[in-house]
Design a protein around this nucleic acid. Structure first.
Length: 82
DNA sequence: GATGAGCGG
């Protein structure tokens, strides 16, 4: 399941996202979207987790948690994939 | 060189 993680701090890296998501389940892959102008984090990214139930649990648990001094927004991505 | 809402490559 593809998970959208936004409202991230610009100082937050993929490893940070991966470790907190790994707390509730296995992280298949984490992709932090980088900005083309600065080449740094755009402040949001995507995380893929199995739909075994860990994904939704990770979402509702990690949604609104503080990371890098900011409260991140975790939600399942609504793109083509089902 | 950085940008603060937002579903990228």
């Amino acid at each position: 399941m593809k998970i959208l993680v936004r409202n991230l701090s610009r100082s937050t890296g993929e490893e940070e996202i991966r470790r907190i998501f790994a707390t509730y389940g296995q992280v298949q892959s984490c992709n932090l979207v980088l900005d083309k102008a600065s080449g740094k984090s755009k402040g949001f990214g995507f995380v893929e987790m199995p739909v075994n139930g860990d994904a939704k649990q990770a979402i509702k648990n990690l949604n609104g948690m503080e990371l890098g001094g900011k409260n991140i927004r975790v939600k399942m991505a609504e793109e083509k994939e089902d």
